[in-house]
Simulated assay, not measured.
Amino acid sequence: MSEQLSTDRVVIVTGAGQGIGRAHALAFAADGASVVVNDYARDAAQAVADEIVAAGGKAVANGADVADWAAGADLVKTAVDEFGGLDTVVNNAGFVRDRMLVSLSEDEWDSVVRVHLKGHFVILRHAAEYWRAQSKAGAQRAARVINTSSGAGIFGSVGQGNYAAAKAGIAELTIQAAAELGGYGIAVNAIAPAARTAMTLGAGDAMAAQMAAPTDGSFDAMDPANISPLVVWLGSAACDVSGRVFEVEGGTITVLDGWQRAASKDKGSRWEPAEVGPAVAALIADSPEPVKAYGAR
Rank of each mutant, 00 (worst) to 15 (best):
residue 282 A to D: 04
residue 277 G to D: 01
residue 271 W to K: 06
residue 240 D to Y: 09
residue 187 A to T: 14
residue 128 A to V: 14
residue 53 V to K: 12
residue 288 P to H: 00
residue 123 I to L: 11
residue 131 W to N: 07
residue 166 A to G: 04
residue 251 G to R: 13
residue 188 V to E: 00
residue 48 V to S: 00
residue 157 S to L: 05
residue 180 E to V: 12
residue 100 M to D: 04
residue 289 E to L: 05
residue 116 H to W: 03
residue 62 N to W: 06
residue 125 R to F: 05
residue 201 L to D: 07
residue 149 S to N: 13
residue 27 A to V: 14
residue 72 G to F: 02
residue 57 G to I: 05
residue 52 I to Y: 02
residue 259 W to E: 03
residue 115 V to T: 12
residue 256 L to G: 02
residue 235 G to E: 03
residue 219 F to M: 13
residue 111 S to R: 07
residue 233 W to I: 13
residue 295 G to F: 09
residue 21 G to C: 07
residue 7 T to M: 14
residue 274 A to S: 15
residue 73 A to C: 06
residue 49 A to P: 09
residue 186 I to F: 13
residue 13 V to D: 00
residue 145 V to N: 02
residue 186 I to E: 02
residue 214 P to A: 01
residue 177 A to F: 05
residue 255 V to T: 03
residue 75 L to Y: 07
residue 261 R to P: 00
residue 255 V to F: 00
residue 11 V to I: 12
residue 111 S to C: 03
residue 98 D to S: 09
residue 276 V to P: 07
residue 209 A to N: 08
residue 225 A to G: 12
residue 27 A to C: 14
residue 189 N to A: 10
residue 142 A to D: 15
residue 99 R to Q: 14
residue 100 M to N: 06
residue 117 L to M: 03
residue 271 W to N: 05
residue 33 A to W: 03
residue 221 A to T: 10
residue 281 A to S: 12
residue 91 N to R: 06
residue 76 V to W: 01
residue 267 K to Y: 09
residue 274 A to R: 15
residue 198 A to K: 06
residue 153 G to H: 10
residue 118 K to W: 13
residue 251 G to Y: 10
residue 28 F to E: 05
residue 19 G to L: 10
residue 156 G to C: 07
residue 130 Y to C: 04
residue 291 V to D: 01
residue 109 W to I: 07
residue 249 E to C: 12
residue 144 R to A: 03
residue 27 A to Y: 10
residue 129 E to H: 04
residue 81 D to K: 01
residue 123 I to W: 04
residue 257 D to L: 11
residue 49 A to I: 11
residue 191 I to L: 12
residue 198 A to Q: 04
residue 3 E to C: 13
residue 159 G to W: 08
residue 228 S to P: 08
residue 130 Y to V: 06
residue 86 L to W: 01
residue 281 A to D: 11
residue 244 R to Q: 13
residue 112 V to M: 12
residue 81 D to A: 07
residue 42 R to Y: 09
residue 196 R to Q: 10
residue 10 V to M: 05
residue 79 A to R: 12
residue 77 K to I: 08
residue 89 V to Q: 04
residue 26 L to A: 02
residue 251 G to K: 12
residue 252 T to D: 14
residue 251 G to E: 09
residue 68 D to I: 11
residue 171 A to E: 00
residue 49 A to E: 09
residue 75 L to V: 03
residue 172 E to R: 15
residue 216 D to H: 04
residue 157 S to P: 00
residue 158 V to G: 04
residue 98 D to I: 06
residue 222 M to I: 13
residue 127 A to K: 03
residue 99 R to V: 09
residue 162 N to H: 15
